[in-house]
Amino acid sequence: MRHIIPKTYREALEHLKSGSLHILAGGTDLMVQNRAWSETPVAFKKDTLYVYNLEELRYIEREGDMLHVGALASYDMLERHPDTPSALKRCIALLASPGLRRVATLAGNIGNASPAADGVLVLYALDARVVLDSADATREIPIEEAITGPGRTAFEDGEMIREIRIPLEDFDSERFKKVGGRKADAISKVSFLGAAAFDGDVIKDLRLALGAVNTTVVRRREIEAQYQGLTAADLKARSQEIREAYAPYVRPIDDQRSTATYRRQVALNLIEDYIHSL
């Protein structure tokens, strides 16, 4: 296996032409997935491109109502940055541990495509987009299109994430809830992000996203759209109906962390409870 440590982003893109590579940023997923016996080198199954030190990609910049998050901006950087959306900050505060947040990146979590990744859940709710570069092209796709299934992405060989674009919008209400096996440093059994913006008493924007209950994050724009234009009181009166509207999309599994029954019940409880809080 080859180990490539590019000096520049351009050089990294050139190397990517050679085929399918592991792109290692913070390493918090790849180093675990490929670990070998201790005191022996990590057993990557593909050639590996070590991009952690590409400082060019370590940035967070605001441009009008858009936040540009470079692929190597860590969760820790995002947590400190004044322009990071509050919903994402709420999520980061409960994500993994200080040592992991220091190196782990949103881009890495997108690449790993775990349906339980909390940061990715927030990106779904905030309509984030992913900018992919290859040596000779660039494209930008919505986060829903970037992730196609557990561990699967729409990225082509030769492409890597340059940045994530997060539209900056104000919400009047936001709630992030992570349900893990313990209060900190846990992988989610279920995660939830709810956000709403009002025009007077009327809901003009409602967003609901659920993590770890299907093969990818669940966000249903058509259901959200149905309830826009209602008052909070109307919405609350229809909380049971909203709960049921999500039920078909909540299709969790039994695993070592929880049960499908629990995940389903809690996911739907979280939606209903959030609607009641509006």
């Binding site: 180990h3 440590i5 290692l24 390493g27 952690y52 030190n53 200080p98 040592g99 992991l100 190196v103």
Partner: peptide, 18 residues
């Protein structure tokens, strides 16, 4: 690492450069 806690078991040597 640069003054901040990290887990050295998840850090490949390559990332420590510089």
């Amino acid at each position: 690492l640069d003054g901040h806690i990290v887990n050295s078991c998840l850090l490949p040597l390559a990332s420590v450069d510089g």
